[in-house]
């Protein structure tokens, strides 16, 4: 069953590929932990499984979505990074999640997010890119800053009832 066709992005150390059924357990494992608190979790296994289905359906609906991040030479899912635009969101987002703290501190999320930002500007032709980050998610704020994004205090919130930070990625100079 191939409902979705997803591109593969390659960086120096990583392969970013579309989500597949065999990633579901890893995804559910992450959403069972407190580590998921800034990205909608923790969730019950059934909620997390549905959410994983949503990740796939997002690709089918928009033609873009979140990639599963793997190291070259291994298909193990380290996280999901990519393009996210659910119903009602004011702007399109580049988002990132590393499933395991052990994957942090190696520039993996940075490398994957940078590739997705380039892809959004150059291939998807997005007019703007933001990253929505929950209050308290200091690691993601640090990453957004390292990516060159700046806090936009006037941007519209995706969920006004639970406001967070909106980091805006600068449009590259010379982009048509």
């Amino acid at each position: 069953m191939t409902l979705i066709q997803t591109p593969v992005l390659e960086t120096e150390r990583l392969i970013l590929r579309g989500p597949k059924a065999s990633d579901a357990d890893t995804f559910m494992g992450f959403y069972a932990t407190e580590r998921s608190q800034f990205t909608g979790g923790p969730m019950t296994p059934r909620q997390a499984w549905n959410f994983f289905g949503t990740e796939i359906g997002h690709w089918a609906i928009h033609g873009f979505g979140m990639f599963v991040v793997t190291r070259k030479g291994s298909d193990a899912a380290l996280g999901i990074v990519g393009h996210w635009y659910p119903w009602g969101w004011p702007e399109k987002e580049v988002g990132w999640v590393l499933f395991d703290a052990a994957s942090e501190g190696q520039g993996i999320a940075f490398e994957a997010a940078q590739a997705c930002i380039d892809h959004a500007w150059q291939v998807l032709n997005w007019p703007t890119i933001v990253s929505y980050i929950a209050h308290g998610n200091d690691a993601s704020v640090a990453l957004a800053k390292r990516l060159g994004a700046t806090l936009d205090e006037h941007a519209q919130q995706p969920k006004p009832e639970t406001p967070g930070y909106v980091y805006r990625h600068p449009r590259p100079e010379g982009l048509a």
Partner: peptide, 20 residues
């Protein structure tokens, strides 16, 4: 709500991919 409905609709599509 509208957001939840969209997420569920996407999950309906994802279910096909995961389960066949």
């Amino acid at each position: 709500n509208a957001y939840e409905a969209w997420m569920l609709y996407a999950a309906e599509i994802g279910h096909w991919q995961i389960r066949g």
